[in-house]
Design a protein around this nucleic acid. Sequence first.
DNA 1: AGGGGCGAAATTTTT
DNA 2: TTTCGCCCCT
Length: 785
Amino acid sequence: MTASTDFLAKLNPSQRAAVEHFCGPLLVVAGAGSGKTRALTFRIANLVLNHRVDPENILAVTFTNKAAKEMKERIEVLFAEQEAQAKHGKSLSALPEYEQTKLRSHVYKNVTKYLWIGTFHALCSRILRFDIEKYQHPDGYTWKKTFSIFDESDAQTLVKTIVTKDLNLDDKKFNPRSVRYAISNAKNQNFTPADLEKEQPNYRGRMIADVYRHYEKALAANNSLDFDDLIMIPVKLFQQNESVLGYWHNRFRHILVDEYQDTNRTQYDLIRLLTTNGEDMAKFNDWRNRSTFVVGDADQSIYSFRAADFTILMNFQDDFGDGLPDDDTRTMVKLEENYRSTSNILHVANYIIENNTERIEKVLRATRGEGETIFCYKADDEIHEADFVVGQIRSLEYQNPELKWGDFAILYRTNAQSRSFEEILTRYSVPYQVVGGLRFYDRREIKDVLAYLRAIANPDDTVSLKRVINVPRRGVGKGTLDKLDQATQTLGCPLWEILSDEGSVKTLAGRSSKGVLEFAGIIKKYRERLDNAKGSEIIQELLEDSGYIEALKAEGTEEADDRIGNVQELYNAVLQFEEENDDPSLLAFLANASLASDLDNMEEGNNRVSLMTLHSSKGLEFPVVFLVGLEQGLFPNFRSLEDPAATEEERRLCYVGITRAKERLFISYARERRLYGHREPASPSLFLGELPVDYVTTNSGLGMPQRMTTPIRDARSEREEAAKPGSGAHEFDWNAGDVVVHPSYGAGEVTHIFGAGNKICLAVKFPNQGRKIIDPKLTKLQRAE
DNA sequence: AGGGGCGAAATTTTT
DNA sequence: TTTCGCCCCT
């Protein structure tokens, strides 16, 4: 492969600066539609082609499988393009198809195969397949390479059993969902049960810590991990085992992280450990042949409820970078040129997000024409809102031959809002898809089959064994299960040990023993074949043997037919997986299945109107976007009304929605909405009052701007206030090094200043609380002179 | 062992 | 209003 720099010519100056960065840390602040995937992929190409970095030394982390897949594909094309130029002097697309395929497979064999590109979870599960047996849990629990990955519902079921059965707690007070949430949150901050207890020493905190302890024990007993463990265990392993960390630190010399604003504490720890080899951040400075390159946009941070913490991004300059102000820094690049939307749309987006205080100053610059104005529609109720939206879609589709159904998206805050749109779309036979509903892998029949496979692959996976021991019916009822359970408790052994012993089963299960033994026989039979047979063969015979398909056929309902079809699709997925992957083992497939999402199979070429939540829309773009339900309490959601930080997150969500639109943006709200069966009057969203009036056409004026109950004030009133003498102009006069006193954190030192003018934000380091980002307009800071 | 019926709850959810 | 989960009855 020849070194080449011509592909860099396609980049704008800031993209180019990001791409050409070689060693050391770099933060790329990438606005919506500014070509960040481009920067990431070109950078990887540049590392390999021009800096001769071995692809094995590159780790690229994303948050979704879709993003990982896209990155892989784009890199492959990029390399193939280079080779096409070098070998044939032509662009890739000008070559005959077989040449293109040949080039691409050549690139795969030599480059992309060796790159580690994937989600945090997928990459960590890969690391754990190597090293989990070296992990030492404080309570002596161990895991084997064959571990299962529990999904969210498995995890919650487990928590529920612990709360109600093991600890006998009131599940009203200790709602399994919120307890699971608390445990997840703890794990996402790399907290042990003891850490959690220390943080919340009250009764509830102690109880939750106790559930957490039991939960870990149960996971270990099942040789299973939950999603959070996939990240947390590598972190703990790295912290306790120098040689393991040393290996991966040495291996991943160039680390790239996409959507850095969405990282949580544990993920941050992982990146930091890999980068510094566990050395103290302040002492580490050996960036030879090494880089940590993160890309993100604080304005698109919308997952704080999943423990994402965008202050990690805001702090990058201080902990990895040179910490210099924006104009002098060599460790930050801003991508502000937007290639997606018309300038009108961008203006609205910029204008809205300016109301947020916690952000890195950034303005999206248009590269396209003005476009149409934004239209804001006030509807009588949710039915009329849907009528308006569908009417617009139909007439735009009819009038513009270039617009297809797939070019439209309806974005809403909550899933429940899809219904009225679906009804009207159906009435007019407009093809549509609801994105992000039930995951394929969450369907009952799929979970059943996967439970069989998991039980076969992982003998300790009692949860999976129990799920299918009586599916299809084998006459193994609750009574039998209870007896078996009791036996495992007394003996302290995994369920399988009892199931696999004929004598024990006969004693315990009585008249159900026939069914239990039949089941155990099936599992045993396939477990023996695990090493030699392919996953696809196992699945195929298993479906026959277990009578699973037969039982579905016997049902004879339409629903059962659907299920059979889905199981067939799962079989196809295994076949495809075996064809496409280097490691086609059943274990690898199971990991892949556990980590798959529904978004992964959202079809783009199917030409349907897309309906989805604003959260699901992140990373996508559509020529025409409808942002619906802009009502106070719905969007912003009522749970965020009291909390300024939460309201800012809702505003970011609004910003994400607006910046999905390429050509046309419609915003709508209803005067009255059916909510849980009752008609409720609705008032216009806070965000409507923040729209720039000159850029918006309405059918009845913009709603009255909402007053906030808490003192987040919009940028304009702040500007006025700042102009008044003595009203706080001096507040903006902060300097790094100032010592301040915070009402709850006490004294701290200002280490960094974000933003400018009235949107200033301070990073303050407190001796005990660590670093916090504080808006001096929201929190009264006293100066310690 | 499984279905019917009643009561309570009802954001967002990359993995 | 709808959906889900639990309990009780058969």
